[in-house]
Design a protein around this nucleic acid. Structure first.
Length: 579
DNA sequence: CGCAATATCG
């Protein structure tokens, strides 16, 4: 009776609440065989992927003892389709542990998942199982293996499997081409392409992308024009290629002349505009798009966040959550939003996401999100929380270390910052420009001049050229130590145009050490570079005043007032939040 | 079922 009722219900579309009730009944009455129907319902009825669905699905799979092969396989494909490869793999190993034989479908899906999450051992293990289950002659399974080895860059094994295949199809060949292109072997890819009898769009597109990736847009274009058939991906590959080599006008030309654009085309263009700071053009394209998905929102939010517009980023996040828009955010959205919070110093919103929202949406933590949170907590002074997350990272990369180093540097834990840097070096992780900013900040705060020099000079050993920001930090530490002439000489020796911050650092140092002569020089440069800021004038006025030159000080203050520049010096980003 | 174009953290 109950079984009948549930079976009927599951044939209709149901609300989340109804599903929960049904699941409850199944649990209470021990109707485990109905889980299969429930899983099937969840996977098929919901055309759009949503975090709650995935979460719920996980829950059911967890409660049911072990789903049958078909249920597990369809759930695997569901998760895989939506990028949740870990979950798909968990299901596959679930099959293993309960002694069930996977289907060829499950194997193909698992191989894909292994490739995507770079699960090298997993793929090799599955390769072994292929023999055990006698799937050797299956084109799909074997192509899956080729695809796996190609994706993880093991072209030796990819070739081995490929050569021994009794039957090959387009996908097998395309996987090989893709693998060669990924490992940078254009010649071998060209060889495959030439030997292929029946090429399809994917083959052509792969080659176009391959040329675009190495910056050879002439060849990419030639191939693009030769193509017997083009689809959106072909056009997108061209747009992406031009964006990559920063030829935005050409990218836009292709974008505009596409017969039909999709979300990816738009995301690619937005990414291009974002990289060169053209938020306005990016936003225009975004607004033009009729139907927007979460990926498009992610791209636009990231564009704002990356270009110093965290407020707009949060506004857009808010917009996507509005009932009339109602787009589910994903991990990437949250990582970007948290970074915006961190720029704003908005600890409360950021930690709300961490402590409540993620859980509510069924979004699981990953290292990207952790790193974003580390930065947030560190920037907002909760260094202990940052450390806790830092220790939970599965893999500590440059970004994570840098966030932590910078966080310690600005929270009075300079020695720990230095220790973290050493630890990072021992782990053979290459520091980058931002890492050095963090280290220099720490050294700066404790006034370690010689160590700063050492750090600054060691940058070129990593192929890094100091940016004006690094010069600023050097000027600051020298200035603090009263070595003003030396700081001035360092600026004069800069290979690039110093920005206002560099001269500002010198000016500040002159003000603490009451050096009128250098202070005037520094202030002059600051005025030239940033005429609309009053902070510099006030600093110089202070220097005059402390040197007893009251008239000069008065004259300067008067002119600042007349220009209407009455902002208080030292006004920070917090003011921009309010505006 | 499997291959091509996009996007997250300092």
């Amino acid at each position: 009776m109950l079984v009948q009722k549930i079976t009927t219900l599951l044939n209709h579309s149901l609300t989340a609440k109804q599903l929960k009730q049904i699941h409850g009944s199944i649990l209470v009455h021990g109707l485990n065989h109905l889980d299969r129907l429930l899983i099937h319902h969840l996977i098929t009825s919901q055309s759009d992927y949503s975090q709650p669905t995935a979460h719920y699905l996980r829950l059911i799979l967890h409660h049911s003892k072990q789903p049958d092969v078909d249920s597990a396989t369809s759930a695997m494909r569901y998760f895989s389709k939506h990028g949740n490869f870990q979950q798909a793999l968990a299901l596959y190993s679930g099959l293993q542990t309960s002694g069930l034989s996977p289907s060829t479908f499950a194997v193909a899906s698992a191989l894909k998942a292994c490739a995507r999450v770079c699960e090298l051992n997993g793929g090799v293990m599955i390769h072994g199982q292929v023999f055990k289950y006698g799937f050797c002659g299956d084109v799909y399974v074997e192509t899956g293996l080729v695809g796996f080895y190609a994706k993880v860059g093991d072209m030796g094994n990819a070739c081995k499997v490929f050569d021994e295949m009794s039957e090959r199809n387009v996908v097998s060949w395309n996987s090989m081409i893709d693998g060669f292109l990924r490992s940078g072997d254009l010649v071998m890819a060209e060889g495959c392409f030439a030997r292929m009898l029946d090429k399809d769009v994917v083959s052509w597109n792969s080659m176009v992308t391959g040329y675009a990736r190495v910056g050879d847009m002439e060849k990419a274009l030639r191939l693009f024009e030769e193509m017997p058939e083009r689809n959106q991906t072909s056009w997108n590959a061209m747009v992406s290629g031009y964006v990559e080599c920063e030829k935005l006008e050409l990218a836009r030309k292709f974008y505009d002349s596409m017969p039909q654009r999709n979300t990816i085309s738009c995301i690619t263009m937005i990414g291009g505009y974002s990289k060169c700071g053209d938020i306005v053009s990016a936003r225009e394209l975004f607004d033009e798009m009729g139907r927007k998905d979460h990926l498009l929102y992610n791209a636009m939010i990231a564009c704002h966040a990356k270009n110093g517009r965290p407020k707009e980023a949060l506004q857009l996040f808010d917009e996507m959550l509005q009932p009339n828009v109602n787009i589910q955010p994903d991990k990437m959205t949250l990582a970007t939003v948290i970074s915006a919070c961190s720029q704003l110093g908005d600890l409360s919103f950021g930690s709300w996401i961490h402590e409540l929202y993620m859980n509510q949406m069924g979004i699981t933590m990953d290292d990207h999100l952790r790193t974003a949170l580390i930065d947030l907590y560190a920037k907002c002074g909760s260094i202990d929380k940052a450390f806790k997350l830092f220790h939970k990272l599965h893999k500590k990369d440059v970004v994570a270390y840098t966030a932590m180093i910078l966080g310690c540097a600005i929270n009075g834990k300079e020695q720990i910052a230095i220790k973290l840097f050493d630890e990072m070096m021992e782990s053979k992780i290459r520091p980058n420009l931002v890492t050095f900013s963090g280290l220099l900040t720490a050294l700066n705060h404790v006034g370690m001049v010689e160590e700063s020099y050492h750090c600054f000079n060691s940058m070129k050993r990593y192929g890094l050229a100091p940016t004006p920001d690094h010069y600023s930090l050097m000027v600051e530490v020298l200035g603090r130590a009263g070595r003003l002439e030396e700081a001035h000489n360092l600026i004069k020796g800069m290979p690039m145009q110093p920005h206002a911050g560099v001269w500002g650092a010198l000016l500040l140092a002159c003000s603490t050490h009451n050096n009128v002569e250098l202070g005037e020089i520094a202030a002059k440069h600051c005025f030239e570079l940033e005429a609309d800021s009053s902070g510099y004038g006030s600093l110089l006025a202070n220097i005059y005043a402390s040197a007893g030159r009251w008239d000069d000080a008065k004259r300067l203050r008067k002119s600042i007032y007349e220009k209407g520049l009455v902002k208080v010096p030292g006004s920070s980003w917090m003011d921009h939040v309010q505006e």
